[in-house]
Computed example of a mutant assay.
Amino acid sequence: MNTRGDDGTGWSRRRVLVLGLATVVAGAGYALWQRPNSAEQPKLGAAQAFSATQAGALTLVDIRTPKEWRATGVPLDSHQIDMRRADFEPQLLAALGGDKHAPVALICARGVRSARQARLLADMGFSNVVDVAEGMLGSAEGPGWIARKLPVARWPAE
C-alpha cells in the first residue's frame, strides 16, 4: 500500500507540478531579461550615431570589453568604458562632463548589451540615452558599424 501519495519513485504529482511551474517561471524571467525591451528604448542607427558624434550632438560610448576593442577597433571619436567596470557610472559621468542629461549613445557588438545598459542608466537618472542597436557587428536592426564602413580607430591608440 502506497501511503506517500507518489508513484513509487518518490515524486508526487504536486511536487512535479510545482517543479514544472517553477521552471516555466524561471525560464520566462530569463528570456525577458535577455531580450531588450525595444518599445521603450530610443534607438539610433550606426550612421546616424557617427554623424551626431561628428556634429558634437552626442557622446558615443563603446561599452564592450578591451578584448573586443583590440579585435575590431573602436568607433572614431568614441569613449571606451567597459560596462563591467565597477566605476562605470563615474567614468560615464566624466565623459559627459558631469551632466546626466547630456545626450549619449551606447554601442556594443550587436545591440543587446547596449540596450540593457541604456535601460539601467535611465533607471539611474540619465535622461538622454540612446542605443546604437545594430552595434559594431550588426544585428536585426542593421549591418553594423563595421559593415557600413564607418571609421574605426585602433585600440589602444598608438
Rank of each mutant, 00 (worst) to 15 (best):
G5Q: 12
D7H: 11
G8A: 13
S12G: 15
S12H: 10
L17M: 14
V18Y: 09
L19P: 00
G20I: 12
L21K: 02
V24Q: 09
V24Y: 07
V25F: 03
G27K: 01
A28P: 00
G29S: 08
Y30V: 11
L32Q: 03
W33T: 02
P36E: 07
P36G: 11
S38I: 05
Q41F: 00
Q41A: 13
L44V: 15
A47M: 04
F50C: 04
S51C: 00
T53C: 10
T53P: 03
Q54G: 02
L60F: 06
V61A: 03
D62N: 11
I63T: 10
I63L: 11
I63E: 05
K67G: 09
K67A: 15
W69A: 13
R70Y: 01
V74Y: 02
P75E: 08
P75N: 10
L76W: 01
L76Q: 14
S78R: 06
I81P: 00
I81Q: 01
M83Y: 13
A86D: 14
A86C: 01
D87N: 13
E89D: 14
E89H: 01
P90H: 12
L92S: 11
L92W: 08
L93W: 04
A95P: 03
L96W: 06
G98R: 11
H101C: 02
P103V: 13
V104M: 06
L106T: 08
I107Q: 05
C108H: 04
A109S: 11
R110I: 15
R110F: 02
R110D: 05
R110A: 15
V112Y: 02
R113G: 04
L120G: 02
L121E: 03
L121R: 04
A122C: 00
D123C: 00
D123P: 00
S127Y: 02
V130E: 03
D131L: 06
D131C: 08
A133N: 06
A133T: 09
G135V: 06
M136N: 01
L137G: 10
G138R: 08
P143L: 09
W145T: 08
A147N: 09
R148A: 15
P151K: 04
V152P: 00
V152K: 01
A153F: 00
R154V: 13
E158M: 07
